[in-house]
Design a protein around this nucleic acid. Structure first.
Length: 423
RNA sequence: GUGAGCGUAGCUCAACCUGGUUAGAGCACUAGAUUGUGGAUCUAGGGGUUGCGGGUUCAAUUCCCGUCGCUCACCCCA
């Protein structure tokens, strides 16, 4: 039955039962990235439209057909951010962050908006976790970013992912590369599909993205390495750093072309299992001319971003259920014979447990113990804390393990430390 | 923006092709068997303008058109 008011197309409500997975993943990302020396940055969700059209490229699909663009009450052209890199660059320049330290390690986490037709793994509001490594150039920086991404995905429990790497050449190489590709593909035009004919005119690099079998032989032989000796060397160095320093051997994917115009140099993408047609879990690369194009100095930068909902479904696809991890730590509180004393006791208990980092479930209505236990079962929980008159009187609680069918009494005072040792 | 499929109870679906009295089931929910020890079983109960609008017909959940929504795919991207 359709309700009178519904969420906008491509947007969803995240409800209890689902949100726990998000919280779990966000927490893991914070811990991991902060351990890697990255600090969180939060910027507004709306920005001047021009910030995005400048950085992503006037002709890019995101700007020209996917952006939520409006006029505010003062007639200013503004847009909901379709990605985060431009906003971070704006914030870095505006706040002169590079005057305070030579390089920056920043991470972010939040909603992005693109008005595309929704599909598996694609929403109009989606969420990204990402990092920006600003004012660091060279293969070591690329290595740091790529390995950080790769290790985080493993840390989160993702199996069966593929890391793809490519190199787009520097901005100086771009015109020459485009010309040589155009020449090459024009010569082979007869063998290419109709889509590719269109791409040949519009954006030759995109031909590498073609999934058509027939085009593959032509694509394989393309002179895609026609960039300067410096870039060729740089690509080799990035691969070497990844292998020797991080033990990572990415799959070299010449057809990997990012859709955002600001990319130069290394670009990469991670695809995951169980995702349907949109199987990119994360992507990123280097963008050494972005800051300059936004009116700043020439500042080299790299970064990646992870699609939160895609990673979550990929985790389920690789047999990991983040919800299980939460349920294992969650305590169900069964308060019996609800009187003022027990109610206060439980209220304090819940606050105390939550502060200690344990998720808590309970049922506030007065009900029988068997009803409590049934509820705990249905919630998929394992541990139940029973607070009845006899326990509360003694300043104790009974901890029941629903899986092992065991029960023990624990002193209220020692509860948190006991649970910490146990869970 | 283009194409295809689907909209029936809170959820998953049946009945639709071959139109015909009160649109069914499972799960969930409520109460009880069962006042402090769970997953089971049984009994009873509440819950629907069949997305919305129009057309064909004596009669539409069923056939047709439109519309809105969802899903998947293309494009592109996380």
């Amino acid at each position: 039955m359709s309700a009178k008011y519904q969420v906008l197309k491509g947007m969803v409500d995240l409800l209890p039962g689902e949100i726990e997975k998000w919280q779990w993943l966000e927490e893991k990302a914070r811990v991991f990235l902060e351990a890697g020396g990255y600090k969180e940055i939060r910027t507004p969700i709306v920005e001047p439209l021009e910030l995005f059209s400048r950085s992503l490229g006037e002709g890019s699909d995101i700007v020209h057909k996917e952006m939520y663009a409006f006029e505010d009450r003062g007639g200013r052209k503004i847009a909901l951010r379709p990605e985060m890199t431009a906003s971070v660059a704006r914030a870095v320049l505006e706040n002169h962050l590079l005057k305070k330290s030579k390089s920056l390690r920043l991470y972010y986490l939040g909603p992005m908006f693109r008005a595309e037709r929704p599909q598996a793994g694609r929403r109009r509001q989606f969420h990204q976790i990402g990092i920006e490594l600003v004012n660091e150039s060279g293969p070591a920086a690329d290595g740091e970013v790529i390995s950080l991404l790769w290790r985080f995905l493993h840390y989160a429990g993702l199996d069966g992912a593929t890391l793809k790497l490519n190199h787009l050449g520097c901005s100086k190489d771009r015109p020459a590369l485009v010309t040589s590709l155009k020449n090459y593909f024009s010569g082979e035009k007869a063998k290419l599909c109709a889509e590719c004919h269109y791409r040949l005119e519009k954006n030759v690099l995109r031909i590498f993205d073609c999934k058509n079998e027939g085009c593959q032989p032509v694509i394989q032989k393309a002179p895609w390495e026609d960039f300067c000796s410096h870039c060729r060397k740089n690509f080799d160095e990035v691969k070497t750093v990844l292998k020797t320093e991080h033990g990572i051997t990415p799959q070299i994917e010449r057809r990997l072309v990012r859709g955002l115009d600001y990319y130069t140099g290394s670009v990469f993408e991670v695809t995951g299992p169980g995702l349907g047609a949109q199987d990119a879990v994360a992507g990123g690369g280097r963008y050494d001319s972005l800051y300059e194009s936004l009116g700043g100095e020439s500042v080299p930068a790299t970064g990646f971003s992870i699609g939160l909902e895609r990673l979550l479904t990929a985790l389920e696809g690789s047999g990991r259920d983040p919800l299980k991890a939460v349920q294992a730590r969650t305590l169900y509180i069964a308060s019996l014979a609800v009187n003022v004393q027990i109610r206060n006791f439980c209220r304090e208990l819940i606050l105390n447990l939550r502060e200690a980092g344990f998720p808590v479930e309970t049922h506030l209505q007065e009900t029988s113990l068997s009803e409590h236990l049934k509820r705990a079962n249905r919630l998929g929980l394992r541990h139940v804390l029973i607070a009845g008159e006899s326990e509360v009187q003694k300043g104790k609680l009974a901890l029941k393990d629903l899986e092992k069918h065991t029960q023990q009494e624990i002193d209220r005072a020692q509860l948190v430390s006991t649970l910490k040792a146990l869970l």
